[in-house]
Amino acid sequence: MRFLMLVLSDPELTDPAAEPAPVTIEEWSAEVYDTGRGIEGDRLRPPAEAKTVRRRKGEVIVSDGPFAESYELIGGFDVLECADLEEAVEIASRHPMAAWGAIELRAYWPLDL
């Protein structure tokens, strides 16, 4: 089962030492990717560089920044291959950003189902 793991930063929690992560990002990456549970992942450019695209009444509208005003900012993503949601939660809970940001897990929803 595949999951998209969104890595969210919390601008108000700027001190990682306030809640130490169980492992470093390098250790987490090795745990997840060296075991084949991580498929792909990367950081994302800042929201200020984002574009939101809409089509309304045949017109393409492009605006600066993310569509939704959000307290937490998406800083990166990982695609996980897991047996179930429980395994995905375990993996996400060890990510350093879970200690001072948030991790959102979204199961893939294949079009053929």
Score class of each variant (00 low, 15 high):
4 L>T: 15
6 L>M: 11
8 L>W: 12
13 L>N: 15
13 L>F: 02
14 T>Q: 11
15 D>E: 10
16 P>H: 13
17 A>V: 00
18 A>V: 08
18 A>M: 04
22 P>W: 02
23 V>H: 00
24 T>M: 10
25 I>V: 14
27 E>P: 06
27 E>H: 09
27 E>Q: 15
28 W>G: 03
28 W>C: 13
30 A>P: 00
31 E>W: 04
32 V>R: 14
35 T>H: 10
35 T>F: 08
37 R>L: 04
38 G>V: 09
38 G>F: 02
39 I>V: 15
43 R>F: 01
43 R>T: 07
43 R>V: 04
43 R>N: 03
44 L>Y: 11
44 L>E: 04
45 R>Q: 06
46 P>Q: 00
47 P>V: 13
48 A>Q: 09
50 A>H: 12
51 K>S: 13
54 R>Y: 01
54 R>Q: 12
54 R>G: 08
55 R>S: 14
55 R>I: 15
56 R>T: 13
56 R>D: 06
56 R>K: 09
57 K>S: 14
57 K>A: 14
57 K>H: 13
58 G>E: 08
58 G>D: 02
59 E>N: 10
59 E>T: 15
61 I>N: 06
62 V>Q: 06
62 V>W: 03
63 S>Q: 06
65 G>N: 07
67 F>H: 07
69 E>K: 03
70 S>P: 02
71 Y>R: 05
71 Y>A: 12
71 Y>W: 00
72 E>T: 09
72 E>C: 07
72 E>G: 08
73 L>N: 03
73 L>V: 15
75 G>C: 14
77 F>P: 02
78 D>S: 12
79 V>M: 05
79 V>W: 06
80 L>H: 03
82 C>R: 13
82 C>G: 05
85 L>G: 01
87 E>D: 01
87 E>R: 15
90 E>A: 15
91 I>T: 05
94 R>L: 09
94 R>K: 15
95 H>E: 04
97 M>E: 02
97 M>Q: 12
97 M>G: 01
98 A>M: 09
100 W>K: 07
100 W>E: 02
104 E>G: 10
109 W>S: 14
109 W>G: 06
111 L>D: 01
111 L>Q: 03
111 L>R: 13
111 L>F: 07
111 L>V: 09
